[in-house]
């Protein structure tokens, strides 16, 4: 199932690509795509909604604190 999230605080598309890679590697997430300019993250996963956001945030912890991910 595809779910969209908002991602704010990323510096550039380069960093977006790195975060995208990291989230894509999370167990239970099949694919992740970040659109830097529209600030949207699209994730394909079968994880329940609550767990999914938590898992994504866990992965994003390695990034500067100003990077925030929220449900749309």
């Amino acid at each position: 199932m595809k779910t969209k999230f908002s991602v704010t605080g990323l510096d550039c598309p380069n960093c977006a690509a790195k975060l995208e890679g990291l989230i894509g590697k999370v167990k239970g997430i099949d694919s992740a795509k970040i659109n830097f300019l529209s600030e949207k993250l699209t994730v394909e996963s079968d994880l329940p909604a609550g767990d999914l956001l938590a898992a994504i945030r866990e992965a994003a912890k390695a990034f500067p604190d100003k990077v925030t991910i929220d449900a749309l």
Binding site: D11, C12, P13, N14, F36, L37
Partner: peptide, 10 residues
Amino acid sequence: CPCALVISVP
């Protein structure tokens, strides 16, 4: 850092 380039094109 290629960031400016990576931003300006998209």
